[in-house]
């Protein structure tokens, strides 16, 4: 019960926060650009509407930039900002003198980050749906897509990307709980995202915990990579997540200075 109240409290803190804006902007940014592009060039859309894999192709285009860079970077930022909120406002000391167990605080903050991730997924999917269908409603020369909306495909894709983002969330959470200086989680996050892009072709690239969202995209597009054929990246992502979360918890509990 305390946990639910604690999560509610944590959720209130995200109001008007940078992280909350990031979720909304991040969710609609790429679909928004797609929509604008399609509205401007709506004459060329006609033929595409007949494509039997219209939605899969369109989602693939959206996920491309998202999965390679924006999603991991957005997760780095949002996960770090949530804990940064307490450092910047000098509120850790107030949080840590409320009558709740440290483990409750740890779990509720993590829950809020995960909820924001779900929120992002929801908005991104909604954005893709709208960007896919709106040109047909706005312009008489664009028919409705022939293909029925593949709900299952969108669900599975989001689910897989969600799993692949978990190690990023967990490690950023670990680091940002430990350091007051925001540049540390941010720098580390950016470094690992870039390392993941550079290392993607390496046959042991699956060792890089931030590489799974790009890998998931390659799998989605049917691009064969040595790393993705060698192991099940989703299992690796979950394994890393578990290790990072346990480590984050231990380090948090044993932190000498609690604000």
């Amino acid at each position: 019960m305390q946990l639910i109240h604690s999560i509610q409290s944590e959720w209130l803190k995200t109001r008007r926060s940078l992280a909350a804006w990031l979720v909304i902007i991040g969710g609609f940014f790429i679909p928004g650009l797609q929509l604008i592009g399609r509205c401007v060039h709506h004459q060329q859309l006609g033929a595409r509407m007949d494509d039997p894999r219209y939605w899969e192709t369109f989602a693939g285009n959206n996920w491309q930039i998202m999965s390679l860079f924006l999603l991991p970077m957005g997760v780095v930022l949002a996960a770090s900002l949530i804990t940064q909120l307490e450092y910047r406002n000098n509120t850790w000391k107030q949080v840590h003198t409320t009558p709740q167990a440290f483990s409750t605080i740890f779990v509720s903050k993590l829950s809020v980050i995960l909820t924001m991730m779900l929120q992002f997924m929801l908005l991104f999917n909604l954005g893709m749906f709208l960007a896919g269908i709106l040109p047909s409603l706005l312009f008489s020369d664009v028919d409705l897509p022939k293909e029925k909306f593949p709900l299952r495909f969108f669900w599975d894709t989001s689910y897989n990307f969600f799993i692949c983002s978990l190690p990023v969330i967990a490690l950023q959470y670990l680091i940002s709980l430990q350091f007051r200086n925001f540049m540390i989680p941010l720098g580390l996050g950016l470094g690992l995202v870039i390392a993941a892009l550079i290392g993607a072709e390496w046959k042991h690239g699956y060792w890089i915990p931030y590489a799974y969202t790009p890998y998931n995209f390659f799998i989605m597009r049917g691009i064969k990579m040595q790393a993705t054929q060698a192991v099940n990246i989703h299992h690796w992502a979950l394994g890393y997540t578990l290790v990072f979360i346990v480590l984050a918890y231990i380090l948090y509990i044993f932190k000498r200075d609690k604000g």
Partner: peptide, 21 residues
């Protein structure tokens, strides 16, 4: 020491955060 307030929240919202806990 220095006051603990969530800068982007109003006074009421700040207290709501603690009231929930």
């Amino acid at each position: 020491e220095n006051p603990s307030v969530y800068a982007q929240l109003t006074a009421m919202e700040n207290l709501k955060v603690w009231q929930k806990v």
